[in-house]
Design a protein around this nucleic acid. Structure first.
Lengths: 341, 341
DNA sequence: AAAATTAATGCAATCGATTGCATTTCTTGT
DNA sequence: ACAAGAAATGCAATCGATTGCATTAATTTT
C-alpha cells in the first residue's frame, strides 16, 4: 500500500512508451494531442491514481494559485467571516488560501509577511496588527508588483487596493443617533488611534458632537484596547467623573457588552438612564439583554470583494496599475441599548 | 523598482564568483563552509534582498512545512478557535497552515482533500462535513502514510489519530443535570447522527434517562441541523405534543438560544417552567438572558493538541505507526437556563 | 619538501511539470 | 506515388534549491 514514490507523468509516459511532454499536454487538454492518446493517458492516470504535483507545477509556472491572508486573530467573528468570504471566492476560482494570524504583534506580522512571500503567494490580503506603525515589510510585495489588498485596518500611506467601511460616517451616525435619542452627554471609548479605523470612528464622533453644539471634552474620550476588562474600567472611570456622561459610543461590541454588564450590576438602567452603542455587530449583540445597538460591517461581502479584487489583479496583470479604495456600506442597527424613546 | 526576476542563489553565486551550492550551504549554515565565505554570502544576500524560493526548496526536499486544515466553516466559533490553536503551534514550529472549508458539503470536501494532497501538505487536520458518509477520499493520505488527524467529527472506521471529547459523557452529564434540577420529562434535539458527535450525545442522553428510569420516548427526540430556525421549529413541535417535555438538551447552543427566544415569546419562563442545556459554549451563551447552561469544549487546546500530534508524526516518521485517540476534557457549565433549584 | 590529512568548494543530478523548438507521422492534393 | 502541408509527438532546457560525490586548496606530519 505504501508506495515509496508518487506516480508522476514520467511513470505514465514510461508505461505507455511515450514522452512526458505528451502526458503533460494530454492531462492539460492541450489541442496538440490527439483524442486517442489523451483518452489512453487519462485512463491510465486514473487507474494509477495519479495526482499532479502542484509544487513542481508552481515552480515551473512561477505562480502558486494561492492567496495569503494575514489577520490579527482568526477567531474573531469579523475576521473569520471575512476569511470565509475570501475562501469561497478563491475556491471557486481554483485558488487556495494560506492563513496566518499576527496576534496583533508587529514582529509576528513581519515574519508572516516574509514567509508568505517566500511561499510565493500570488497575492496578499491583510488587516494590520494593532502595533503596526511601519510598513517596510510590505515592500516585498509592492516592489515586485504582487497584488496586495488591505482591508479594515489599512496603511493609508501605501498605494494599494483597499477595502474599507466609512468609519468616520459610522462614528457620526452612532453619535448622532444617541443625540437623537435624547442623550445629553456622550462619551467615546476609542481603540488605538494609530489604526485608521479607530481614529476615524473617533473623528466621526467628534464631528457629530460639534455639529450639534455639544461639548467634546477630552475627559469623555478614553483610549484602550477595547477588551472586556478595558470596557469595564472605562465605564468606571466615566461614572467617576464630576460630570459623568449618560451615553457611550464604544469602539467595539465587546467593550459595549462589558459596560452593559457593569451598569446592570450597579443598578443603572440601559437604555433608560444610560445609552450604549457598540461596533461591528458581533453575534452576541443581538441576543443579549438589552440587545446592543451597533454598526454592522458586511464582513463576508468584504471578503468576497477583496478576493475578487485581488484575483482580478492577479489574472490581468495591468500595467501601469491603478488602485482603488472600495468603501463598503454599513448599517446602524438600532436595538434596545440605545432606545431611550 | 520592479525587478523582473527575483534574486536567486545563482545571482549571489555569480556576483561572488562561487558556486550556487556554496551559497546554498552558507545560507543554511552548513559547517562545511568557512566562516569567512558565509559572512560574505550572507551580507550580499541581505544587500540584494534575497528571499529564498520556498517552492523550489519544497520540491527538492519533498516536504512543504505546511499543514492543511479542513473544517465545515471557518466562521464558527468552535472551528475558528480550534484553527487558532493549530496555527499558533504550527507557526512556532515553522509551519504554514492552509485552510479550507467544506461548507458541510461532501463534494467540496472531496475536492479540497485532493487539492491539499496535490499541494503536498505534510499533514492534514480535519473535521468531517455533515454529509460525509464515505471516506475513500482520505485514502489519498492514509495510503501514503501522510499524517492525518481527525477532530470532533471523526471517521470511526479509519485508523488515524483523533482528537475528541467524550460526547457520550457530555450527553449524559447534561441530561443528568436536568434531572437533578427536577425536570421530569426531558427531550433532545439531535444533529445528523451520521456524525459520531451527535450520535454519542444522543446516546449519552438516552443512557442518563435509562439510569434514572425515565422514559426515552421517540417523540422526545428530534433530528435536524440545529440552525436557529431548526431550533424554533423543534420547540414548537415539542410543545405541541400531547405530553410535552419540560426540558430540552440541545445539540448546540444556537438551537438552544432560539428555543429560549421562542419560549420567552410565548410566555414560558426559563428555567422555572422549562429547562435548557446547550452545547459548545458559544460566546453568546454566557451573555444572553437567561444565560445558557452548556458544555464547554476546549477548542483552542484541541487545536494545539492536534498540531502537536501531527507535527510529532511528521517529524518522527515512525513505522509501524500507532494511532491514538485523545479525549479532551469537557466541562458542564451550569448557568441560568437550567437552574430550577 | 614531499606525503598525508583535513578543510573548503564545485560539479552535476535531482525534485516533477511545462514548453519552445524540433522531428516524426499522417493526410491531402495533384 | 510523391511532394507539401498539417497533425502528433519528442527533446531538452527551465523553474530554484539541495546534496552525494568529486576536486581543489590549505594545513599538518614526518
Amino acid at each position: 500500500m505504501d508506495k515509496k514514490t508518487s506516480i508522476t507523468i514520467h511513470d505514465i509516459a514510461k508505461e505507455l512508451n511515450i514522452s512526458a511532454s505528451t502526458v503533460s499536454r494530454a492531462l492539460n487538454d492541450n489541442p496538440r494531442i490527439s483524442k486517442a492518446t489523451k483518452a489512453k493517458i487519462k485512463s491510465l492516470a486514473l487507474k494509477l491514481g495519479y495526482q499532479p504535483n502542484t509544487i513542481a507545477s508552481n515552480l515551473r509556472n512561477q505562480r502558486t494559485n494561492t492567496i495569503g491572508i494575514v489577520v490579527p486573530l482568526v477567531n474573531r467573528h469579523f475576521f473569520s467571516t471575512f476569511i470565509s468570504g475570501v475562501e469561497d471566492v478563491a475556491f471557486d476560482a481554483g485558488y487556495n488560501v494560506i492563513i496566518s494570524q499576527s496576534k496583533d504583534q508587529l514582529e509576528k506580522e513581519k515574519q508572516i509577511i516574509h514567509s508568505l512571500f517566500s511561499n510565493r503567494v500570488d497575492g496578499l490580503i491583510t488587516s494590520l496588527s494593532m502595533q503596526t506603525n511601519e510598513f517596510d515589510h510590505f515592500q516585498l510585495f509592492t516592489n515586485k508588483n504582487i497584488p496586495l489588498v488591505f482591508f479594515d485596518r489599512i496603511a493609508p500611506q501605501l498605494e494599494t487596493n483597499k477595502i474599507v467601511v466609512d468609519d468616520f460616517a459610522c462614528g457620526f451616525k452612532a453619535t448622532q443617533h444617541l443625540i437623537d435619542q435624547g442623550y445629553k452627554r456622550i462619551a467615546h471609548l476609542a481603540g488605538p488611534t494609530v489604526l485608521n479605523t479607530y481614529h476615524e470612528r473617533m473623528e466621526g464622533y467628534k464631528d457629530a458632537l460639534k455639529k450639534n453644539s455639544l461639548p467634546a471634552e477630552d475627559e469623555l474620550i478614553i483610549f484602550n484596547k477595547l477588551t472586556r476588562i478595558d470596557g469595564q474600567e472605562a465605564i468606571k472611570k466615566l461614572l467617576a467623573l464630576k460630570n459623568p456622561p449618560d451615553a457611550v459610543f464604544c469602539g467595539n461590541d465587546t467593550s459595549a457588552l462589558s459596560m452593559i454588564v457593569y451598569l446592570k450590576s450597579v443598578g443603572i438602567r440601559v437604555p433608560e438612564d444610560f445609552g450604549i452603542v457598540g461596533f461591528s455587530n458581533e453575534p452576541f449583540s443581538e441576543v443579549v439583554t438589552p440587545s446592543i445597538s451597533t454598526l454592522k460591517q458586511p464582513a463576508y461581502e468584504m471578503g468576497q470583494k477583496a478576493a475578487q479584487l485581488i484575483l482580478n489583479e492577479i489574472e490581468n496583470k495591468l500595467t501601469p496599475r491603478s488602485y482603488q479604495t472600495i468603501t463598503m456600506p454599513t448599517e446602524l442597527i438600532v436595538r434596545e441599548s440605545s432606545m431611550k424613546k
